[in-house]
């Protein structure tokens, strides 16, 4: 295909990605160095109240936003350098915590707390998701045709459910004296409150995430199991490989590229863990990197959004995902280049 024709084909798609993904990135980068705030003016105001023997007057200085001719708040934008980053990272507290080797104190700071949770969440769910997906694919591959249809249908349900709703449905099973909490209480013979401390909420979130993503791994593995070379399997059998060895040396190598593919997708998706926190209303116990940015972007009680700090935390979040993805991306690149040449 000639390059000109190629650009006509990909043009609209590339244009959309440039306008709505690349351009915002640049603007977030720039915004993170600037602060826009209302211009304040200080005025002296005299308030008088009627009193005994004449008025009592007090004069006080009031700070209020400056309004322009149309009655809108005048804002000014100034370059503040790395100040937004400093305030997101809370550098003073971080430095103090590091000086004392105090991990507890470090993890009290929003950003590091969120980073710790996001990374633990990502790397704990990854292997479990792959194992559950593979196990399900092998199981569905073994059962008869009549059972496969309904089994696949039920398996797909957690995958397509809206993440916020999925998290909510798990929450309703456990919250207060929810049905599963009641079950655990009956089993342990003691009171449990699963939404009262961070670690139980984290476990529930991981539990939810595995429930939500294992079906995708299942579908991908199941599809690939249909293309395992039967001759190789039979020759392995003739060479005396038992079932476990056939799985280990024939089937898993066949699935290897998909394991990389699924890990890559999972890294991207669980690094942006967010919906669980909304669904569980967990923000006072557990927060994630993406939630911090969301929180800065949500208007506060006065209706202001801290765009500058949001941009700084967005840039920091982005640096994190880039570091995580360097290795898998290089691998994809190597695979692709090898195939093309």
């Amino acid at each position: 295909m000639r390059l000109r024709t190629f650009f006509w084909f990909v043009g609209p798609s590339v244009a959309l990605m440039l306008i709505f993904i690349a351009a915002p990135l640049v603007s977030v980068f720039v915004q993170s160095f600037y602060v826009t705030s209302p211009v304040l003016e200080t005025v002296e105001r005299e308030t008088c109240a009627p009193g005994f023997l004449g008025e009592v007057c007090t004069t006080q200085t009031v700070t209020r936003p400056l309004l322009d001719a149309d009655g809108r708040v005048v804002t000014e934008t100034e370059f503040v350098g790395l100040q937004a980053y400093r305030s997101v990272l809370e550098l003073d507290r971080t430095r103090a915590a590091l000086a004392d080797w105090d991990l507890q104190a470090l993890l009290q700071i929003d950003f590091w707390k969120a980073l710790r949770f996001t990374l633990v969440f990502t790397f704990v769910t990854l292997p479990i998701m792959l194992a559950v997906g593979l196990g399900l694919a092998l199981a569905v591959n073994t059962v008869t045709e009549r059972v496969k249809g309904p089994a696949i249908f039920l398996t797909l349900l957690p995958f397509i459910i809206t993440p916020v709703i999925g998290a909510l449905s798990i929450r309703w099973l456990f919250i207060g004296d929810g049905i599963l909490t009641a079950l655990i209480e009956w089993w342990l013979q003691r009171d449990v409150a699963l939404f009262a401390q961070a670690w139980t909420i984290e476990i529930l979130m991981m539990f939810y995430r595995i429930w939500h993503v294992a079906p995708f791994a299942f579908v991908v593995f199941y599809a690939a199991l249909q293309t395992v070379n039967r001759d190789t399997l039979e020759s392995a059998l003739i060479d005396g490989a038992n079932r476990w060895q056939r799985l280990r040396y024939v089937i898993i190598p066949h699935l290897a590229p998909l394991i990389v593919f699924l890990s890559l997708i999972h890294l991207m998706d669980s690094y942006r863990v967010f919906e669980e926190i909304v669904g569980f209303s967990a923000e006072s116990h557990v927060i994630s990197l993406q939630w911090i940015t969301y929180d800065y972007l949500t208007p506060d009680d006065a209706g202001n959004r801290s765009i500058s700090r949001a941009s700084a935390s967005a840039m920091l979040t982005m640096i994190g995902i880039v570091i995580l993805l360097i290795w898998p991306l290089r691998r994809t690149w190597a695979d692709y280049s090898r195939r093309e040449t």
């Binding site: 640049v26 690094y271 940015t293 967005a314 979040t317 982005m318």
Partner: peptide, 11 residues
């Protein structure tokens, strides 16, 4: 791979 909140901060 970009978290969506990064983009929304731009929009």
């Amino acid at each position: 791979a970009l978290p969506h909140s990064v983009l929304v901060a731009g929009y």
